[in-house]
């Protein structure tokens, strides 16, 4: 598991709207006394806030009456959770075995080159977040990438530039 860097000094009142923070409180209140509630709470919170910076983790920890270390431990353990802001489009490159043997790695290398980011990073203009995933189960279309909900299958290295330019 790779550690996720999270900006500790982030000002949540600037990053999130009051409505978003209110929803967070509601999610916590609803799950407060349930066994095994932490993961569902984090999942719903990320659904509302899009990312979970350290100050948010502190709110969740005190709300659920759990040590912050436990909350931080869970967030950094599961790849689904993110502590950094995300781009407008999430580009997920499938590196499942089927896509890999059909050239997924070359596709990934070119995307990294084109976007000038590494896996897990967001472009400075916050347009794209690049992620790699291990199998989205669209093996019949490999190599495949997802941009948001859109599927780009049977992708060739030469077509990567065209795909990126479709999004703005």
């Amino acid at each position: 598991m790779k550690a996720k860097a999270g900006n500790v000094d982030i000002d949540i009142s600037k990053e999130f709207t009051p409505e978003q923070l209110k929803k967070l409180d509601e999610i916590i209140a609803k799950n407060k006394d349930k066994a095994g509630a932490l993961i569902p709470v984090l999942e719903q919170a990320q659904g509302v806030l899009e990312f979970l910076p350290m100050p948010i983790l502190k709110i969740i920890a005190s709300g659920l009456n759990l040590p912050l270390s436990r909350v931080y431990g869970v967030v950094t353990f599961y790849s689904f959770f993110t502590m950094t802001p995300r781009g407008k489009h999430t580009m997920r490159v499938c590196l499942g075995t089927a896509c890999y043997v059909r050239g997924g790695k070359a596709i990934n290398d070119i995307i990294k080159k084109e976007l000038k980011v590494e896996e897990g990073e967001t472009t400075p203009d916050r347009l794209f977040t690049l992620e790699t995933v291990r199998c989205v189960g669209a093996c019949g279309l490999g190599p495949v990438i997802f941009v948001g909900e859109n599927v780009h299958g049977r992708l060739k290295p030469a077509k990567v530039k065209d795909v990126i330019s479709q999004y703005n």
């Binding site: 095994g36 984090l42 999942e43 436990r70 599961y78 790849s79 689904f80």
Partner: peptide, 23 residues
């Protein structure tokens, strides 16, 4: 119960720990 993206959770003891809301 929904997983949150950790391959090791397919292992039975890890899955149960995850269901308990832990890493």
């Amino acid at each position: 119960g929904k997983g949150a993206g950790a391959f090791v959770c397919g292992e039975s003891t890890a899955l149960m720990t995850s269901l308990e809301g832990k890493a």
